[in-house]
Design a protein around this nucleic acid. Sequence first.
DNA 1: GCGTAACCCTACGCACGAGTAGGTATGCTC
DNA 2: GAGCATACCTACTCGTGCGTAGGGTTACGC
Lengths: 212, 212
Amino acid sequence: MSTVPAFKRLPRAVREQQMLDAAVKVFSRRGFHAASMDEIAEDAGISKPMVYAYLGTKEELFVACLHREGTRMMQAIAGAAAPDLPADERLWRGLRAFFGFVGAHRDGWAVLYRQARGEQPFAGELAAMRARLVEVVAGMLDHALRAEGREIAAIDLEVVAYALVGASESLADWLADHPDADPEKTATRMMNVAWLGAAQLLHGVTWRPPVD
Amino acid sequence: MSTVPAFKRLPRAVREQQMLDAAVKVFSRRGFHAASMDEIAEDAGISKPMVYAYLGTKEELFVACLHREGTRMMQAIAGAAAPDLPADERLWRGLRAFFGFVGAHRDGWAVLYRQARGEQPFAGELAAMRARLVEVVAGMLDHALRAEGREIAAIDLEVVAYALVGASESLADWLADHPDADPEKTATRMMNVAWLGAAQLLHGVTWRPPVD
DNA sequence: GCGTAACCCTACGCACGAGTAGGTATGCTC
DNA sequence: GAGCATACCTACTCGTGCGTAGGGTTACGC
């Protein structure tokens, strides 16, 4: 046959990304168990054995998704929050990057956050990622405190950081369910809660993003 | 045979509770899909057809778990936060009841929070419960604001409430993973974040539970 | 221009687990 | 103590979907 084959052959690296794209999409819609390898393969425009050949078993595939999306997210945040800025500026930039990422990768985020929590094999992976984030936030708070000559117990710091991360995750989830919502605006709202706190807000003080 | 049968017959109401106990336990450990009806039946000390006869299909069983645990939680919170108290007092009591519930029903919480999120058939059910909570919190904030002669947009109010609920859920999750942590102390920490906010905390102001 | 490696397929085996068929025993009512 | 409802069981059927066996085709080095 001299006719061009219906679909062309592509190098491994490209196909792997297509497969991961498809996997993230399907996993996020259906969840780990309800997603079928057949559907992922079909969505990627490839046959099932190829998926197994390149990315391994279903579990390994899910972990690969988790890693890719997690790394992207962490890089987006780390790239935005330069360590030499003042704390509020860092927090603001980090939040903006975070909500921007979620807004742009709604289904990637959904995999990370909603699906990986319950399933034992992956919960640890996710927890480790979150732990890194919490550590960063806690470090930031600690830094800001010391600059004021204050100090609080490490455990309190950790729990506060955990609450802030949790609140952000929660708003991100809200964002994922409201496609017409604005990430930037959501980040601003989060900043109000996080930085000024409810009591300040009740007294009418409002934090605004710096004019740039 | 005159010998006593190995396990006695019990009335339906009792067996149903045993089955629900077992189901909550297994669902929380394994997740909806990975949990098997056989394991649930075995854990309840009964055979599988009995589970089907009393609680219906696997999905219906899961929904039944969701309802029981959700109702228990909501009642615990509603019973603690009397509507005629000042806002901070209500918030504090609600939080204390909430963390108390999670501490006492760790796997019930895990079913609610970790497992029901991802699976489409149940996410709606859960979202409705959370929406009720958010509404209550938002109403409380609004009330407190109006008492000070202030007012903010409904959407902002909702998002702030959502963030607070999210932060609480996140700390509850942390609590579920730290069996030796104290619910009361966790509630106090949450109260600090929620009521005073990070900025206040940075200036050294600390909220303390009222002496009772 | 030939070998070899990379790319890709159709078609299955097989286990696991939801849900059921069909039957037994126990206690309660009259 | 006969009748009947309720509690309870063992032992299946059958669909679904993971993972693979085995084989075909294109490109690239030499």
